[in-house]
C-alpha cells in the first residue's frame, strides 16, 4: 500500500460517508465515487473497501439493503440519520483542521523568537 493510501486510511470513514451523501450506492459505485472524486489519487485495493462499509453498517452509520441485478445479489448502502450527523461533524472538524494547517504552511516569514 502506498503512502497516500496509508494517509487515506485515517480518513476513510468520513470519505465513505461522503460518497453516500448524494444517495444510495453499492460497493463498486462507492469505490468509483472515491476514485473519481479524488481525481484518481486514492488507490486502495477495491476489496478492502467492503469490510469498511460493513463496519460502518455495524456502527449504524449506514444501512445496507439487498436487491438482485442481472442475476447477482447486490447490497446497496445509504446514510442513516446517525451517519448524516457523523458526516457533518467530521466535515466541520476537517475544515477547521485544514484551515489551521493551510495557514501554517502558507509561505510567509515566521515570527522571530528572542
Amino acid at each position: 500500500m502506498n503512502a497516500q493510501a496509508q494517509v487515506l486510511k485515517g480518513h476513510l470513514d468520513v470519505l465513505l460517508l461522503a460518497t453516500l451523501e448524494a444517495g444510495p450506492r453499492h460497493g463498486y459505485a462507492v469505490k468509483e465515487a472515491l476514485r473519481e472524486g479524488s481525481g484518481g489519487r486514492f488507490d486502495l485495493p477495491t476489496g478492502t473497501i467492503y469490510p469498511a462499509l460493513h463496519r460502518l453498517a455495524g456502527a449504524g452509520l449506514i444501512a445496507g439493503s439487498w436487491s438482485t441485478v442481472d442475476g447477482r445479489r447486490r447490497r446497496t448502502y445509504r446514510l442513516t440519520a446517525a451517519g448524516q450527523r457523523r458526516l457533518h461533524a467530521d466535515r466541520s472538524n476537517w475544515h477547521d483542521f485544514a484551515t489551521a494547517i493551510t495557514a501554517l504552511l502558507e509561505t510567509r516569514p515566521w515570527p522571530a523568537t528572542s
Partner: peptide, 14 residues
C-alpha cells in the same frame, strides 16, 4: 456468503 456475494457483484461490475 453475504460478503462473497457482495464482492462477486463488485468484481463482475469491474
Amino acid at each position: 456468503a453475504d460478503a462473497v456475494d457482495e464482492l462477486a457483484d463488485g468484481i463482475t461490475d469491474t
